[in-house]
Computed example of a mutant assay.
Amino acid sequence: MKLSRPARITLRVAAVLGFAVIYVPLLLVLVNSLNPDRSSSWPPPGVTFHWWADAWGSAGARHALVTSLKAGAGATGAALVLGTLVAFAVQRFRFFGREALSFAIVLPIALPGIVTGVALNTAFRTVLEPLGVGLGLFTVVVGHATFCVVVVYNNVIARLRRMPGSFEEAAMDLGANTFRAFTDVTFPLVRSALVAGGLLAFALSFDEIIVTTFTAGPDTQTLPIWIFSNMARPQQAPVVSVVAAVLVLLSVVPIYLAQRMSSDTASGSRI
């Protein structure tokens, strides 16, 4: 389809404006983290890494980072197991309620985060607290896994739908049992989808704040919650900018790798 010159210019201007709205605020966060002025004056009078050193020396920020990494790893592990099993069940078998199960798996990602958070908080206080299990890292992992499982499920089932079943049938015709066919044929073909889904799930968990607010205990503070709780403190503003910049950078890496692994080129080279 050929577009007229005014249409091409309009689309380019709209694209530039759209990207500016998304990425200029993120760039400002990085600039403010290097601003020597504590009040984040504009334009910055210079460049300093003093606030980065202060952020590294902040015990609260370091503890929050470790908590976020633990929560992300736990939620990603649970999502990989559950999402993969459900994807294989839905794609490879026909049973009553198959479509309902698929809908139930995907639904949490579409629900407002505050609704999910309130529901989980109520469930945890009703079911777990009488058993002596309070809000903490475990409940955060469970809360994050409810929506992380969706991205793993979508990645794996999309790969399975594009994967011909004749490969496994050929392996079994040659004498391979079910386990051998899976390890030698099926797993290598879905491996990139698993890695991409796991990376996306980790990134989704790492910067989650709404569900975390309702599922974390008083002693469980992730990095986004630490940023939110320190934003109102003027003395902490530069350090918050540094931590926010680190959070952006740490989120970009898994998303970029997942995009590379789930691209058509990467998928085609593995099938």
Rank of each mutant, 00 (worst) to 15 (best):
M261N: 12
M163Y: 08
P44G: 08
A78R: 03
G83N: 09
L34H: 08
T126F: 12
D264C: 00
M261V: 06
W226D: 04
F124T: 00
V142L: 15
P164V: 08
A201M: 03
V106A: 14
A73Y: 07
A232P: 00
R92H: 10
F167H: 11
F214C: 09
R125G: 13
V248F: 14
M261D: 11
T146G: 13
T126H: 08
S40F: 02
V141Y: 06
A110K: 04
P108L: 02
H144L: 14
D184C: 13
N121H: 14
A258S: 12
N121W: 07
G268A: 12
V66E: 13
V66T: 13
R92N: 07
Y256S: 08
P36C: 10
S205I: 04
F88I: 12
A89P: 05
A244L: 10
T122F: 12
P224C: 00
K2P: 06
I157R: 15
V156G: 06
A15V: 08
V16N: 01
S40M: 11
W52E: 04
V81Q: 03
I255D: 08
A258E: 10
G74T: 07
D173C: 12
T265W: 15
I157M: 04
A266L: 02
G113M: 11
L250C: 06
G132V: 04
V253R: 09
L30V: 15
P188S: 04
G74H: 05
L250M: 12
A20C: 14
L250Y: 01
A104H: 00
L28H: 07
V13W: 05
K2T: 15
A7P: 03
V47S: 07
R191M: 06
G134Q: 11
V246Y: 09
G165E: 05
V149K: 10
V29D: 05
R92E: 14
S269Q: 10
V195I: 15
S39R: 14
G165R: 11
A170P: 04
I255E: 08
V149M: 15
Q235K: 03
L249E: 01
P25I: 07
A59D: 10
R162E: 12
L223T: 01
L189C: 12
S58K: 10
V133C: 01
L111D: 06
F88R: 15
S166L: 13
M1F: 09
L135Y: 02
I210R: 02
R38T: 07
K70R: 14
